[in-house]
Design a protein around this nucleic acid. Structure first.
Length: 619
DNA sequence: AAAAAAG
């Protein structure tokens, strides 16, 4: 065992010494010098390496299940032809930077040393987390998944699957699915996974909490495992060539995705590395050097790594954008375009691209279509009903009364709380300064609070989140940095102390509660400053079968709508490609009569109702 | 206008 790995290391060093120009000589299938490193496909990396037949032995007989859990004994099924992400490879427009596609076929630099130290991601949970996860995995209402409305559009949409078993993900991945206690796929998984496995690009609208992380991770991991080994051009000694890139808009969300992806890829040999700002780059560089198949990153740090030439996107086969609408809004778009279009990433059609978000305004869809090729649009309603799970309230509160009003809520909540403990309450404010000052004031008044926002150090941010999750500090005051994607179990109450200007942000914020099948409460403080949101808010609540205060309806009637008209619909915005050709204006193609465009509500919707919001335990 | 993301 050791000898082979020692060889790999030695060969790797040899490769590093090779002149750059050698890249031109390693066409697909050409024989390489015997001293070059042997590529070990990810799914074989946990086995005892055998001296012969390094690469193509997919799912070979269970010769080496030497390490604990049988990675890859699914036998001949793995010999099936993979879904080739670039069928026209030789002449297909060249990968990214141009001209360097020569070596895509075979073998690679081996960076497989050190893999034996893989930490069991299922073993190192927080204790608090563990206690909860028991509860977590019981009360799932699977029946609620049966009639989730789903809409797909695009050419030749692969049919959905009903079980994980009928998807050929491979034994190692299946085992991780069991470890995660996933029993059956969520709706977004049922649809998205076959689409991705079929090699298709995807734009998916699905609520966080609907299992979308797994929906894009499973096909990526599986695809990397079954994929042909690739040649990593020896461009620079320390440059790494990930095969998949997952981008997310906040550091904490990247961390969360990384943690999940690590679980899914445990003992598959597929390596996941995370890179984000605010943390020392050195550890991240070391992680990268140990090898990376899937890179999870925030845009800023990734650009840094690209500019230092520590990462190349040349070999990217899979690109996933989480919270894609956020990634493409005004603040982020240039950075994303730089990464996706101006570095060395293969173009659409060569790589496979997946975009996920709970909200997808059609202007953003238009931007996003630049990144996609012949994609499938998927809209999945939420599980169950927000009527059941998230109760939304709006209260008219003057600016000057907000603090005392919040205090009243917190007092009442504490009185009702179990064992006198304060239920987890997430308070959203507009500004970072406002967050600090509200936190300070809450603490002064006997409510243990902490805060998370972009002016805090990364260490402080992570501490705040942990402290909140553990219940140590049951009140978290946050800016929109915490609005999206974060899975914080057991948030009982989301308070919109300051309402956002954009209804989509409201949707994301309240989605932090009512998760994992638990009930949630969302309270908003509304006053004249928020009048531009009145219409959208009233519509949204109406569609979710929430009680809309009469005063809010009056505001809504008076308001001029503005940018918040929600023309595109809410959850699972409609595919903008169809909108153009069929129905313009407000009336919608999928659902005549739901003219306010909402997918949010209970009655309209694609196949009889965009199941109003709910969540699964699987995110 | 604010927030996020590089240092």
């Amino acid at each position: 065992m050791r000898t082979s790995w020692a060889d790999l290391a030695a060969n790797s060093a040899a490769e590093n010494a090779a002149p750059d120009s050698s890249a031109n000589n390693v066409g697909a299938g050409s024989t390489l010098a015997p001293t070059r490193p042997v590529y070990v496909p990810p799914h074989l990396r946990n086995r005892q390496p055998s001296a012969e037949s390094p690469a193509p032995a997919y799912g070979g007989p269970s010769s080496g299940t030497g390490s604990s859990s049988g990675a890859g004994n699914s036998g001949s099924r793995w010999a099936a032809p993979r879904n080739d992400y670039r069928s026209g490879h030789g002449g297909s427009g060249g990968g990214g930077g141009g001209g360097r596609t020569g070596g895509w076929g075979n073998r690679s630099g081996g960076w497989d040393r050190g893999r034996e130290r893989e930490v069991n991601p299922f073993g190192d949970e927080d204790n608090a987390e563990e206690a909860f996860s028991e509860l977590e995995n019981t009360g799932i209402n699977f029946d609620a998944y049966e009639d989730i409305p789903v809409e797909t559009s695009g050419e030749n949409v692969p049919p959905p699957v009903n079980t994980f078993a009928e998807i050929d993900l491979g034994e190692a991945l299946n085992q991780n699915i069991r470890r995660c206690k996933y029993v059956k796929p969520t709706p977004v998984q049922r649809h998205a996974i076959p689409i991705s496995l079929g090699g298709r690009d995807l734009m998916a609208c699905a609520q966080t909490g609907s299992g979308k992380t797994a929906a894009f991770c499973f096909p990526i991991i599986s695809g990397i495992m079954r994929g042909q080994p690739v040649q990593r051009p020896p461009r620079g000694v320390r440059t790494v060539y990930p095969l998949a890139l997952v981008l997310s808009p906040t550091r904490e969300l990247s961390m969360q995705i990384h943690e999940e992806a690590r679980k899914f890829s445990y003992q598959t040999g597929v390596r996941v590395v995370v890179a984000y700002g605010g943390a020392p780059i050195n550890q991240q560089l070391r992680d990268l050097e140990r090898g990376v198949d899937i890179l999870v990153a925030t845009p800023g740090r990734l650009v840094d790594l690209l500019e230092r030439a520590r990462v190349s996107l040349q070999m990217i086969r899979y690109l996933a954008l989480d919270e894609a609408d956020r990634m493409l809004d005004m603040g982020f778009e240039p950075q994303i375009r730089k990464i996706v279009e101006q570095m060395d990433m293969p173009p659409p059609g060569v790589r496979q691209t997946m975009l996920f978000s709970a909200t997808f305004p059609k202007e953003i869809q238009r931007l996003a279509s630049d990144f996609l090729s012949n994609y499938i649009f998927l809209a999945v309603g939420r599980v169950g009903s927000s009527t059941d799970l998230i109760i939304q309230r709006v209260e008219y509160v003057q600016e000057s009364d907000k603090r005392s009003h919040l205090m009243d809520l917190l007092h009442a909540q504490r009185a009702n709380g179990v064992q006198g403990k304060q239920a987890l309450t997430l308070v959203f404010v507009e500004t970072k300064k406002g967050a600090d000052s509200l936190e300070h004031w809450l603490c002064l008044n006997g409510f243990p609070a902490t805060t998370i926002h972009g002016d805090r150090s990364q260490q402080e941010r992570e501490l705040a989140l942990r402290s909140f999750k553990s219940g140590n500090t049951p009140i978290l005051v946050a800016t929109d940095v915490a609005a999206r994607g974060l899975d914080i179990p057991h948030v009982a109450h989301v308070v919109n102390f300051d309402l956002p200007n954009d209804i989509d942000d409201y949707v994301h914020r309240i989605g932090r509660t009512g998760r994992a099948g638990k009930k949630g409460l969302a309270t908003a403080f509304f006053n004249d400053n928020n009048s531009s949101l009145a219409r959208a808010l009233a519509d949204l609540m109406q569609e979710a079968n929430q009680e809309v205060p009469a005063w809010l309806s009056r505001y809504a009637a008076r308001s001029f709508g503005g940018r918040n008209r929600r023309s595109g619909g809410r959850f699972g915005s409609r595919d903008f490609r169809r909108e153009g050709s069929f129905s313009r204006g407000g009336s919608d193609y999928y659902n005549a009569g739901n003219s306010s465009g909402g997918g949010y509500g209970g009655s309209g919707g694609y196949t009889g109702g965009y199941g109003p919001g709910v969540t699964s335990a699987w995110d």
